[in-house]
Design a protein around this nucleic acid. Sequence first.
DNA 1: TGACAATAGTTACGACTGGTGACTAATTCG
DNA 2: CGAATTAGTCACCAGTCGTAACTATTGTCA
Lengths: 223, 223
Amino acid sequence: MPDRRARKPHYSIDVVLLTPVRGQLAVLLCRSPEGRDKWSLPWEGPRPGEALDVTAARITKGILGEDAVWREQVGAFGDGKRHPADTDLSVGFAGLIPMGTPSPVGGVYAWFPLADVPQLAPRQRQVLDSAILMIRGRMDQSPVAFRLLPQTFTLTELQQMYELLLAKRLHKASFRRALQGAWLVEPTDEWRSEGRGRPAQLYRYSPRKRRPAQRGIRLDLLS
Amino acid sequence: MPDRRARKPHYSIDVVLLTPVRGQLAVLLCRSPEGRDKWSLPWEGPRPGEALDVTAARITKGILGEDAVWREQVGAFGDGKRHPADTDLSVGFAGLIPMGTPSPVGGVYAWFPLADVPQLAPRQRQVLDSAILMIRGRMDQSPVAFRLLPQTFTLTELQQMYELLLAKRLHKASFRRALQGAWLVEPTDEWRSEGRGRPAQLYRYSPRKRRPAQRGIRLDLLS
DNA sequence: TGACAATAGTTACGACTGGTGACTAATTCG
DNA sequence: CGAATTAGTCACCAGTCGTAACTATTGTCA
């Protein structure tokens, strides 16, 4: 957390850390010292000579003990909206935390499901919204969903993670067909029985090189 | 251009302005006062209370007299690479300038085809490369190509603009079929004869509302 | 123990998409 | 007129995607 005795930094690095909690995406917030019910994204000022993503990694490690398994810059936010750091500019980062990572103790930090995020400073709200949109857009370009799962997982778990991140239902057969074509996972020889029903085979993430898969133009998505 | 008598700003806004020049994408650079053959992206420090994109618009208008027809933030760049502003941080913007916009006179600014860009400060080179990648990625989400053409255009011109931006050849029939399905253009009743060959019908950009076009997941593009 | 529910995994079919070459249409040039 | 050149369309085919129905394997309960 920021050292409040230091003088005001010129800009802040804000991190949006996401993890699945009970079937929902949750973001890590930290309690503001100003009020008991005021929360904010974790942030810090820069250190001289430190790259932006290194700062984001340092913040993450300082809170959770581990760095995020995936991180990407969301952008710079600077219109005059209020921010706890009282700086002109904030640089946002999004990071994914694998499920099962132990939560920080002490009551200063807490995971909030996206639907229950309390009021934030306007600029931080912007960072959060942009981070979610950015991750949704990265889903089909970067294997982010695997990063949130343990080393081995069932295909149903993987599908549920995709559904969680995309916020929409997927069809089982289509999902597995696409997965097959993408050569992203390989089966292990283990199976897991989860209560009733047929046991599920465990898979591991293991991307293989494939054909460049150059498809044509898609004007579908244009506004 | 930056006022060099002002004290060093805390960060800079750098703009990547692109326009088609003789069948190539070109970027606007400005001659550095330090050396005759030193060039840089246009940049300025922030003004208090001014939003980031407003600064980018101000820089553009100051040089070309007109704002860009499309603009998007590229991101924040802050690892210790050198930059003419000597700041810790730079925020990059990409902007598109329609073809036919009068070039600035005076020899301070010049358009460089992307293949012939001279050496830049390392951080500005990063901004430029990221801007190109960002625009390529936006091609199928935002109707950027239309922004570079005049009000009316032939479909061949539109296709050539797409090929320029994507840096790859497209098949005529596929392109037109996709265009048809996207409901993005409507024909005018004018035709243009360009030397030899059958005259081409002129079209105008006129997006219509369409079905949401929700397709399944595409894992094709994953690494 | 046997029927049933629940979950995993596969198969098949039809609609649609995208790449492609070949076709027609309209104009200029010699 | 006929060849060359550019615009625009058509039709075929391979592949992809949405979908329902199917099989497979387990636990539960009468």
